[in-house]
Design a protein around this nucleic acid. Structure first.
Length: 581
RNA sequence: UGGGCCGUCGCCAAGUUGGUUAAGGCACUGGGUUUUGAUCCCAGCAUACCUAGGUUCGAAUCCUAGCGGCCCAGCCA
């Protein structure tokens, strides 16, 4: 366990769920001895996204939590690389990084389904030997035609009655590379009339003359998911094989393979059991691999680690934190009901974590100049700001105040709307950590845009000095001395889609109209501005996160931030009960 | 319309071997603290468990019949 994981593990109370209940029963009955073994089995053909984070915390979290009562508990990272035409090494590295980033150490526990190809093949031969599998030589169209439909049974393949010897011979020759892709497949002999389509003689092996990212050209036949997955679980001694709900219909097949194989002596009981839970659905995002790929390939975002994307790579760059994800995973829970989580919940989790861990700094994101006309020309007044309001031990830092300042454009209004209590002509406001000032005037350009604001400070009101507390003003705005701040690129990110269900039906859509999710993209999800930040911020390491007071949480860009060109990404705004109204 | 899964407060989610007033979180509302309209603290928030019947002294939990949602016809995972 890494420090990160140790930290996140203690964050929340454990909430009961049906999987834990099941495991508790197994523990009570000593079904698997003193062991809870899970696995996280991504296919290395894409990047991990928020949905995977749920699965990672579930699988690794369970193994971690049960360690005390079941000392042999563990969770494997297993790359499900059984399809050579889709998988690549670059994804393997990315996935490993993401899992580590979330706080789980997988060293020594990293496996590949492709490591089991020989064993898998032997298991398949055993099934053939036992008359439980056969080589079918129909083409794919015939296969589809004879499978039947949801309401009609399928029909037996003309090759279904081949002898064991012939099947064995054919299967071995498939492996030897004697046949072209698609010429034959190995099928389980179950029941073409089964109401569950998965049991209508499912494919076990297909011929693919393709280079595999790990096994190279050693194989030209590759096992299908349903066969490879359960066997891999059994090989690794997995006890609880957790997957999403769409695999529920596959469970009878999972059990069929393993039961048969156990009967044939390939595995000992107890066998792993598959348990399904509902996948993550989040508003305002898309989590399907296909759509994510489309967003990247069509250039709607700037690559897989674009902060607008719900990928873990994007999240990291956005400033989302592992602890925030852990909070999120615990908050949404595990169940079998189709749920749709408000994106807001995720954001709140990030705020909760960041509020605690992020030091406060000052940044003026949309600068407007304020001149204190009664402030001495060359005077510099040191002001002091705590680095964290809840953690005095983190100390204070100096922020110099001078005659010319930058304030937030939104903090000034010529004619205040009702309830506005920031800077406005003739009224007073406190410069945070500094003095109370009064607005005495402002300049405008020909278009009416305010170009500069004037004010006078009250020298008796400096924050922290005796008596300064006695004068209360409602408004409190942040500021930065023009001469003591530096420009910084600020990248404002917002949700990628403007509708809660991208591509979903909207009012007025024709009954058969299918909306393209791309039309729901929020064109303003990324906006770049140059703001001002405290000088020291230019030298913070990449990925440092801060709360820019009154503005939100920001992170120094993982890749582009340099002392010469500071760049901060907005992770999430602060909650704001004012702008809500 | 074959099979499978699901339906508890706006969003999640405990509870499901039937037994006091249906956990908890988020959101929301009200109040307090506060030099972040932030944070923090306190309080409130389902006579109700998809609907209708039934069994029972007693049901969210059992039975029956409906209704609604999701998944499945890749040599993808």
């Amino acid at each position: 366990m890494t420090d990160q994981a140790a930290e996140t593990a203690t964050t929340n109370p454990v909430v009961s769920n049906f999987i834990r209940s099941r495991i508790d029963e197994d523990c009570a009955h000593k079904t698997y001895g003193r062991k809870v073994a899970t696995r996280f089995p991504p296919e290395p053909n894409g990047f991990l996204h928020f949905g995977h984070a749920k699965s990672i915390f579930l699988n690794f979290g369970l193994a971690q939590d049960y360690l005390a009562q079941c000392p042999q508990s563990l969770c494997n990272l297993r790359f499900d690389d059984t399809n050579p035409t889709k998988e690549e090494t670059e994804y393997v590295d990315a996935i490993r990084e993401d899992v580590a980033w979330l706080g789980f150490d997988t060293s020594g526990r990293e496996y590949y389904a492709s490591d089991y190809f020989e064993r898998l093949y032997q298991c398949a031969e055993q099934l053939v030997h036992a008359g439980l599998a056969y080589v079918d030589s129909q083409d794919s169209e015939s296969l589809r035609a004879t499978r039947g439909t949801l309401t009609e049974p399928g029909t037996n393949s003309p090759y279904r009655a081949r002898s064991i010897e012939e099947n064995l011979d054919l299967f071995r020759r498939m492996r030897a590379g004697e046949f072209a892709d698609g010429a034959h497949i190995l099928r389980a002999k179950i029941d073409m009339a089964a109401p569950n389509m998965n049991l209508r003689d499912p494919a076990i092996y297909r011929i693919r003359h393709a280079h595999h990212h790990r096994t190279g050209d050693a194989w030209c036949i590759y096992p299908m998911y349903d066969f490879a997955h359960c066997v891999s679980d059994a090989i690794e001694g997995i006890t609880h094989s957790l997957c999403t709900l769409e695999f529920t219909d596959h469970r009878p097949l999972y059990e069929w393979f393993l039961d048969r194989l156990a009967e044939l002596g390939a595995f000992n009981r107890p066998l792993p059991q598959q348990i399904e839970f509902s996948r993550l659905n989040l508003t305002y995002v898309v989590l399907s691999k296909r759509k994510l790929i489309q967003l990247v390939n069509d250039g709607h975002v700037d690559g897989w680690n674009d902060p607008r994307l719900p990928t873990l790579k994007g999240a990291r760059r956005r400033g989302f934190t592992p602890t925030g994800f852990k909070l999120f995973a615990d908050r949404i829970g595990i169940s079998k009901s189709d749920s749709l989580i408000d994106y807001q919940v995720l954001e709140d989790c990030m705020r909760e974590d960041l509020n605690e861990r992020a030091e406060r700094r000052v940044a003026v994101l949309n600068p407007l100049k304020l001149v204190l006309t009664n402030f001495p020309e060359n005077h510099i007044e040191p002001c002091f700001a705590p680095n964290h309001p809840h953690h005095a031990e983190l100390g204070k830092r100096e922020i110099p105040l001078s005659r010319e300042l930058w304030i937030e454009r939104e903090d000034f209004m010529i004619e205040p709307t009702k309830g506005f209590f920031r800077l406005t002509p003739g009224k007073e406001v406190r410069l945070r950590y500094g003095y109370i000032i009064k607005c005495t005037g402002f300049d405008r350009d020909e278009s009416g845009q305010v170009t500069q604001v004037y004010g006078e400070y009250d020298a008796d009101t400096k924050s922290g000095t005796p008596g300064s507390e006695t004068r209360k003003v409602k408004g409190n705005i942040h500021w930065l001395s023009c001469a003591h701040s530096v420009p910084a690129e600020i990248r404002f990110y917002d949700r990628l889609f403007r509708t809660a269900a991208p591509g979903g039906r909207q009012e007025g859509d024709a009954p058969d109209f299918e909306r393209d999710f791309l039309t729901d993209i929020n064109p303003n999800a990324k906006q770049i501005q140059v703001g001002r930040v405290e000088q020291a911020l230019a030298h913070c390491p990449a990925e440092s996160c801060y709360q820019f007071e009154r503005n939100g949480y920001f992170v120094a860009d993982q890749f582009d931030h340099t002392p010469g060109k500071p760049i901060f990404n907005r992770t999430v705004t602060l909650r704001d009960s004012w702008s809500k109204n």
